[in-house]
Amino acid sequence: MKIMVAIKRVVDYAVKIRIKSDKSGVETKNVKMSMNPFCEIALEEALRIKESGFASEVVAVSMGPTQCVDTLRTSLAMGADRAIHVDAPSGSVLPLSVAKILKALVEVEKPGLLFLGKQAIDDDCNQTGQMVAGLLNWPQGTFASKVVLDKEKKVATVDREVDGGLETLCLDLPAVLTADLRLNQPRYATLPNIMKAKSKPIKKMTPEELKVEMRSDIEVIQVTEPPKREAGVIVSSVDELVDKLKNEARVI
């Protein structure tokens, strides 16, 4: 069985986010970019499945500008066998387009399992996994915190973190899974693996080759920072506090 993992290149989670002066989006120039942490977890799980003998190959795929190759190189250094980069301008890669590209790639590669992060930390959409499952008409196990495969029965048992507890699903393969934070702790890219990754292939493709039209159904009108928290005041008496709560904050 082959596993395909979708990888997204995002602004590093430790970077302080700055809004572009024209409010058209987040500043990404001269900003450290890294692999989306949830994608890292998805990749780690795919690698573990392969290492335990349930899969023969892990293919990492990413969509976006040329620099996505760096992120794919990281996934190869972690242990993916090969990678596919679908070259597309960064503004056009919205969830539905990504889902369509993933569907097209699945039709080419025919994996038994498509793994994604539950969401990306830049736009927090949490849509792509669900959309691609819908497009493929595959069962989906989203927010997976535990994945157990049964090779014989071609079934995946998935624990999902839902409000109020865990839900366990049994999915027929092929299926779409999205990784939650507690699924695993991703490994580091070690030097021997970084060395090996240098000779692993990264195939470049275009949306046209995959017959996907990169159409944006969403128009971003404005991106703004959340309002700054105002400094507190120290009140001198209970009466003053009550007065402020009544007349300024209007909460009582």
């Binding site: 430790a14 890294s34 580091y188 070690t190 030097l191 060395m195």
Partner: peptide, 27 residues
């Protein structure tokens, strides 16, 4: 950095190693 470390690895100065791929690994 990679070139330096790979060379150090080949010449046996470094036995093993990892390079941080993002800030959380770095920290």
């Amino acid at each position: 950095l990679e070139a330096f470390l790979l060379h150090a690895m080949e010449t046996g100065l470094v036995s093993d190693g990892a390079i941080a791929q993002d800030s959380s690994q770095a920290s």
